[in-house]
Design a protein around this nucleic acid. Structure first.
Length: 584
RNA sequence: GCCGAUAUAGUUUAGUGGUAAAACAGAUCCUUGGUAAGGAUCAGCGGACAGUUCAAUUCUGUCUUUCGGCACCA
């Protein structure tokens, strides 16, 4: 999909369209006060205060009509440069614009406004020459948005739209939006019977069906095997913990509002755990460690529960229960860089296996001014942040730095991706932590026989298996590679009556070899059964007729391909196993 | 949590102040058989709770779900 923000011409056009939108809104709703109307990757929006008037989706058509009318009038868009005083006077009845103007420094910026007919808006520009140029646009949605992005502020109404230079581009974009919906993991999950949810079980608590659980298990086995080879030790710990544990870790202070409330039993309080760090800390603390044992890498596919805001839950991408591909690495200060590097290498090794190329690395740092959220130890933070920065630079990884995005206990590297529908999210993460080891008084004995505090790296490669599965589904449009497919081969006798026995032999042969095979010998037409295999996105279809039966061969066809290849069953097995092994 | 929308069969949708329709999926039977839809018959539906009404799936309210955003996101 086109990124409007990256195209200079389209940016100007879209921003001009935002002004056109504001003008139309002002015509239809004279009470309207305007905040800002920036260009975004997906077009533009305008945040508007309409008092008690509510713009509904059905009103968008009306607004579009007004926009088209204004556009036809073809007024010129004229820039006016203003002194701060003039600007304050010009927008004296719009508190939002006044807020903007008051914060401007005349000596640093030229304050300007753009006028088109009866409408004038504070704006740095540039804009197109006349409103006539703004022709091919569409208002997409309307929603609430907090003023200045702060939930404590008033909620304004935001109208989203997009504009192009010609009708074809606009239609293509609208078509792409429709297509994105088709690969939304929630739709695929339903169509392919991967997971479900039920009101009675509860919101944000998806359940994996047999097909989905196969994919899930394959992911689990895959990552555990990778980790095992890298010296990780896997553990299993309970999903519930004493509240005291979380008070000790600091999560109770910093994370309570995202946890299910405590359960009081016999004078004790327990919580469903939102993460596994404290459990793993206790495992480390359960015995004395030598420097020779470090790094110690404790991994777990761990069930976690977070009370996500009701508006935040989304399929298996963000649920209130999920399974983290979690691990905690206990290392000496000297090992931080090499272990961090190992984690980064693992992340990109995995991405290579899954063909993930559309990601964005973010180095999340603390906001030094936020003393409440962040553990106040400047030296610790500076060291931690510098070490991560150094490794990323050494590895030549492109990243951006974001202030105030760090965890309360330390800085982190996040690897973010964008789903088919919705906002970017974090897939993988690696976090450096000097804080928890101190809180739990973790120790190891160094060369000189003295006690030292280790450093902890928290890391999740697949993030959560659930979220990772959502991403892979959207990337593959549900046509999973053979190694992940719930059913790998569909065996189709042309006529079950005549080749059914042969199909059974082939099916058993593959089944014996550990292939997930489905024999479809229902007395339906071949075309019908073939179609079903197609819609279930099964990677291989075997067609067995008299020819194959006589020659003791099989004919296979790949998902999405037209051609059929005839080989012996052993040849097919070799090909299939090779494909599964290489995760193609 | 906030703003807006939404809820009808397993799925996707239609329709209505007088108890509901279609397609696909399912079952049975017939038919057929080489690369995406043969036929017949059958079975299956109103999120929950209130209110208005002679009568509510339809109108109203509350809650819940889901969806689009915002905020949140270790």
């Amino acid at each position: 999909m086109i990124n409007i923000k990256e195209d200079e011409k389209l940016s100007v056009l879209n921003h001009s369209c935002a002004h056109l939108l504001a003008q139309a809104v002002k015509h239809l709703y004279p009470v309207a006060k305007f905040w800002v109307g920036p260009v975004i990757e997906e077009g533009f929006y305008y945040d508007i205060d309409l008092g008690d008037t509510v713009i509904k989706e059905e009103d968008l058509e009306k607004i579009e009509k007004e926009m088209k009318k204004i556009s036809k009038d073809g007024k010129r868009i004229v820039r006016e440069e203003l002194t701060k005083e003039q600007a304050l006077e010009m927008f004296h009845d719009d508190p939002y614009k006044l807020d903007l103007i008051r914060r401007m420094d005349e000596n640093e910026v030229t304050i300007s406004a753009y006028r088109q007919g009866d409408f004038v808006d504070l704006c740095r520009g540039p804009h197109v020459e006349t409103v006539k140029e703004i022709k091919y646009f569409k208002l997409l949605k309307v929603s609430g948005a907090y003023w200045k992005g702060d939930a404590n502020n008033k909620m304004l109404q935001r109208i989203y739209g997009i504009c192009f230079e010609n009708e074809e581009d606009l239609n293509n974009h609208l078509k792409a939006l429709e297509e994105a919906k088709e690969r939304d993991h929630r739709k695929l999950g339903k169509d392919l019977e991967l997971f479900m949810s039920d009101d009675l079980v509860g919101r944000g608590l998806p359940m994996f069906l047999p097909n989905g659980y196969i994919v899930w298990q394959e992911l689990e086995n895959y990552i555990k095997e990778k980790e095992r080879k890298l010296g990780y030790l896997h553990v299993m710990t309970p999903c519930v913990g004493n509240v005291e544990l979380y008070k000790k870790s600091g999560h109770w202070d910093h994370y309570k509002e995202n946890m299910f409330p405590a359960m009081e039993v016999d004078g004790e309080s327990f919580v469903l755990r939102p993460m596994n760090c404290p459990h793993h800390m206790m495992i480390y603390a359960s015995k004395l460690h030598s420097y020779k044992d470090l790094p110690i890498r404790i991994g777990e596919i761990a069930h976690d529960f977070r009370y996500e805001a009701s508006g935040a839950v989304k399929g298996i991408e963000r649920g209130r229960h999920f399974c983290q591909n979690d691990a905690h690495l206990f290392v000496t200060k000297e090992q931080i860089k090499s272990e961090f590097k190992n984690v980064v290498d693992l992340i990109f090794d995995v991405y290579k296996d899954f063909n993930i190329t559309n990601y964005r690395c973010v180095l999340s740092l603390r906001d030094p001014l936020d003393k409440e959220k962040y553990h106040p130890d400047d030296e610790m933070w500076n060291q931690a942040e510098n070490e991560l920065r150094q490794v990323l630079n050494e590895l030549g990884i492109e990243y951006t730095e974001e202030i105030g995005e760090a965890a309360f206990y330390g800085p982190k590297l996040d690897v973010n991706v964008r789903p088919a529908v919705g906002n970017e999210y974090t897939l993988s993460t690696c976090q450096l932590d000097f804080c928890l080891p101190m809180k739990f008084d973790l120790k190891y004995i160094d060369k000189n026989g003295e006690k030292q505090t280790p450093v902890v790296l928290h890391r999740a490669i697949l993030g959560s298996l659930d979220r990772f599965m959502a991403y892979i589904l959207e990337e593959t449009k549900g046509a999973l590679p053979a190694w992940l497919s719930p059913v790998q081969v569909s065996v189709l006798p042309v006529s079950p009556e005549h080749q059914g026995d042969y199909a059974k032999v082939i099916s058993d042969f593959l089944d014996e070899e550990g292939i997930r095979v489905k024999l479809d010998d229902r007395s339906e037409k071949l075309g019908y059964r073939l179609r079903e295999a197609q819609t279930s996105k099964i990677p291989f279809m075997l067609i067995l007729g008299d020819k194959e039966k006589e020659n003791n061969t099989i004919s296979y066809r790949r998902y999405g391909k037209e051609e059929t290849t005839t080989v012996s069953k052993e040849e097919f097995l070799t090909l299939l196993k090779d494909e599964i092994k290489n995760k193609k």
